[in-house]
Design a protein around this nucleic acid. Structure first.
Lengths: 190, 190
DNA sequence: ACCTGAACACCGTTCAAGT
DNA sequence: ACCTGAACACCGTTCAAGT
């Protein structure tokens, strides 16, 4: 027995979802990755929607843990934000992948409602964490931090999306450095 | 005879591509929209890739003309940029649609090469136009205007993408207003 | 010149059947 | 408990056939 087939499906699906989105997920390739037949996936996930929910939910949980780990380890919120943009960069470098949210926000109208809900929760986690760093760094008063965090998150997401659309990571670097120059992202940190 | 079947296909395809992307385009629905059979589309466009190229090419041409019209009519570059963000907002209001580039940058790895090339040309048109407004407004010295324009374009795109992912246009408004507060977008204009 | 039905290999899904 | 083959309606595509 290979540990846990369900987990193997989940992790293969997650990897695909960050490379080609929800629409890019297909049961036959996924099954081949895991070493079972397409029909067998339905034993673990009744429908593609169920698989999608599980993938995004796990993605959100992992992100939540990872972000908490960063802000726990690093006392300096400016360093935390620096690390944050580095993560988006690393994903691009990993075979031109993206944050799953960039795919799913684009695929919004084709997404099952349950998947939409999970994606919104993922966005909330990110925006809340960014808002905390921004107010901790006294960049923005706390009552404006949520609003600013939304702009920061979407600007980073947009930079990642466009860099992918050009297949050019320097587009990302350049956009992020401009955001810092403009002061929408702090330029401190290590 | 209904004017021009090829044009009817193109415009139906464009509308769909702004709602569901390249992957969301399908010959049977498209044919039904136009009032012919699926196989007949291949007479006008040999393959889906050919259709995709034609759609993006037309989209880029239309955008080029529209942007020139704006900067020709409006002497004030700040007003031009205000109009620019208004266009992205209007697209969102039109049934939660998006700039075609937001879909296609996400779908990048599934796009035929010829479509990728067209999308890159579309991005170039937008970035160049934004750069011109930024330097005309003396917001950025001309040698930095291209770099800044890339950041502006991707930030607007990201705001549109996230607003769609939340199905919440106020997300867009809020992000754009933060970009203005931060000075990455000018706050002047009418 | 323009359109069509029928066929192909591909998708998600279902289900009866295996172990 | 977990997996499978076969079938279904759906996709883009091809092609011989219509007008």
């Amino acid at each position: 027995m290979r540990e846990n087939t369900r987990e193997a499906i989940l992790s293969a699906a997650r990897r695909t979802a960050q490379a080609r989105g929800y629409g890019g997920l297909n049961f036959r390739d996924l099954a081949a990755d895991v070493g079972i037949k397409s029909a067998s996936i339905h034993y673990h996930f009744a429908s593609k929607a169920d698989l999608g929910v599980a993938v995004v939910k796990r993605y959100r949980e992992d992100a939540t843990i990872a972000l908490e780990a960063i802000s726990d380890e690093m006392p300096d919120p400016l360093s935390c934000l620096q690390r944050y943009t580095d993560i988006f960069r690393a994903v691009l470098q990993n075979d031109n992948r993206m944050c799953m949210n960039n795919f799913m926000s684009a695929e919004y109208s084709d997404l099952p409602d349950v998947v939409k809900t999970e994606i919104e929760a993922f966005i909330d986690v990110n925006v809340a964490w960014i808002a905390r760093q921004l107010s901790a760094a006294s960049i923005v008063p706390i009552e404006n931090s949520e609003k600013r965090a939304r702009a920061v998150f979407s600007a980073i997401a947009g930079a990642q999306l466009l860099a992918r659309g050009r297949s050019d990571i320097s587009f990302y670097d350049s956009a992020i450095s401009e955001l810092r120059d403009a002061g929408i992202l702090p330029s401190g940190g290590d």
